[in-house]
């Protein structure tokens, strides 16, 4: 069974009383739980949350499976999301995705040795600064292939020095 940290428990308790109904707290709590569990949510996490919030796990699962920002498997330390929708596509989004996928070899489990996962995603609202990518919570815009590779290499290096 997944153990919810004390910090997250406090967060959940606060969120539950923040909105008009307890159910509205599911989305914010799933975000917090995801941070607690290295960036993704397992079935165990859902069960623990269901018990702690006293909400049937089916209601939590409904939300968990509907929204794309809840990761169903590990996305490593750095989740690189390359927009490939229309404006990014016209400015080389798909090429960028391919170049990054070649440069940072993703293993069978979906994560590279440097703990990266790379996904193609739909519009991120950064169409005037295409192509772009989102790494965890941050946007990197007006990219070239070289610039994107450098950003990622720097992130990997900064993790190693920390």
């Amino acid at each position: 069974m997944f153990t919810i940290s004390e910090k997250t428990k406090k967060f959940i308790t606060k969120e539950v009383s923040r909105y008009e109904t307890k159910r509205s707290a599911i989305i914010p709590c799933l975000f917090e739980l995801q941070k607690d569990n290295q960036g993704w949510i397992s079935n165990d996490c859902i069960e623990s949350l269901s018990q702690f919030m006293d909400i049937p796990s089916k209601d939590i699962n409904e939300v968990f499976h509907f929204y794309t920002m809840f990761n169903k498997k590990s996305v490593g330390d750095f989740h690189i999301q390359v927009c490939c929708n229309i404006s990014c596509h016209m400015n080389g989004g798909l090429d960028l995705f391919k170049v990054l996928s070649d440069e940072f070899k993703i293993e069978k489990n979906g994560v590279s040795k440097d703990s990266l996962a790379i996904s193609k995603v739909e519009c991120l609202g950064s169409c005037g600064t295409a192509p772009m990518m989102q790494v965890n919570e941050k946007y990197y815009e007006n990219l070239t292939k070289d610039k994107a590779i450098q950003v990622i290499k720097d992130l990997i290096a900064s993790k190693k020095t920390n």
Partner: peptide, 9 residues
């Protein structure tokens, strides 16, 4: 108050 979506057009 503010509420954050979770990725759904």
């Amino acid at each position: 108050d503010i509420y954050s979506g979770a990725g759904a057009y």
